[in-house]
Design a protein around this nucleic acid. Sequence first.
DNA 1: CGGACAATTGACAAGCCTCAAGGCGCGTGG
DNA 2: CCACGCGCCTTGAGGCTTGTCAATTGTCCG
Lengths: 242, 242
Amino acid sequence: MSTKCKNCPLRRHDIFVKMTADEVRFTQKFKKGELTIDPGTPLLVEGSGSPQLYSVLEGMGLRYMTLDNGRRQVINFVFPGDFLGLQGGIMTEMQHSVDAVSPMTLCVFDRSELWSFFRAHPERAYDLTWLAAVEEHFLGEALASLGQRSAAEKIIWAFLRIFQRGTALDLVENNTMPFPFRQQDLADALGLSLVHTNKTLARLRDKQIAAWRDGMLTVHDIDGLAREGGIRPDPLPERPLF
Amino acid sequence: MSTKCKNCPLRRHDIFVKMTADEVRFTQKFKKGELTIDPGTPLLVEGSGSPQLYSVLEGMGLRYMTLDNGRRQVINFVFPGDFLGLQGGIMTEMQHSVDAVSPMTLCVFDRSELWSFFRAHPERAYDLTWLAAVEEHFLGEALASLGQRSAAEKIIWAFLRIFQRGTALDLVENNTMPFPFRQQDLADALGLSLVHTNKTLARLRDKQIAAWRDGMLTVHDIDGLAREGGIRPDPLPERPLF
DNA sequence: CGGACAATTGACAAGCCTCAAGGCGCGTGG
DNA sequence: CCACGCGCCTTGAGGCTTGTCAATTGTCCG
């Protein structure tokens, strides 16, 4: 039996925009079911059109694209609350892939109903655009990090954003949150080599700034982290939930 | 007297999705006026909320953000057909700036009417989300370029996308289109230093791959350009127009 | 025990950055 | 009318951050 939107465990977190009872009801009607996938499973595949849209209920994943030269760019780390499937343009096939990295549970929506959903529920349509705008802003920030920061600063920026997201989702316990990725994933996200990423991580660990080992990320002093990276610790923007 | 949407000169280009007469009429009602600004003028300023949304009718500009360390990341080059103002999140203040680089003409919309516009015209709301998704896809590609390509490849990728856009807008004449930016702008867009950008540009010019001088960009063989950069020359996706 | 995979470390190479200086075109003011 | 300043482009030299190559360790699992 799939989770009722009414009881969605994500909704209570502050980072998500409050919804009216009606909005919850509309979303429930749009929702077609739930999908659970194992770590390592591809959810969306580059080049193959997906008839579904997904909302992440639980678990983490990796959104990436592969270049012609064989190199891989991780676009972002996928967390609960992320909405997947719009990025490839509304109509066309997907240009990104998404893989599960931990066991994921997803809400499933039919892409083909998107249009009638827009017509029937303008308030939710508005939210979807809002969500796209939030995502676009995040990508702009990521672009700035890749373009203008040193390796250490990039990693610090990533950790900061990840930790903020984790905090917003109540994943942090004892200054520690799960972050079940490989160093190669982070390297591919930040445009660094694996080796250099590894060495920079070691330095951050030695300097007691941030420690990531065995799939757990620990940050004791967020503000100190931000200072170290020369970053203004802007709060995460509120985002609509689907 | 401001341009009627019905007579919008952009609409005839293939890159824009076809609109019904009704859609044109709705958009016209949403449009509040026209704005013309000189080169060098800021249109949107980081940190100051803009009550307006803009659609670029003519001219080019620069969208960028400034980091705490003083460095600047150019998010993208702004062309006719771009829609500006959503990126900062729908409600909050802008985190990017946009400056005009050539004389620009813009269609002006009221942000405060966006919600009622969504309610009244779901087909156009759908288009706006579509546009955001296209933009998001582009930023993903830019991210991949910054992260995974060499300096020469980055520049080639940028030239390719710019030239495709120019072609779609009929700005190309004799394999040459206007591109009125500084080398520093391109450097800040690609995360390169000015000096290295300059030297790489010189090399591309020597090798007859692409020439950019006096504000004009010349590419004789697009496919050769793509090949040189190790890039699959995907066509630009169709995009809705506002 | 052997193989696969991720993390780690060292040595070396190189792509790109910074510093520095000069040239060219253009507008301004004496 | 010419000198000067300014913005932008160009070029050279040297160095540092980061990448590549290679080998080792630890862990999990069949």
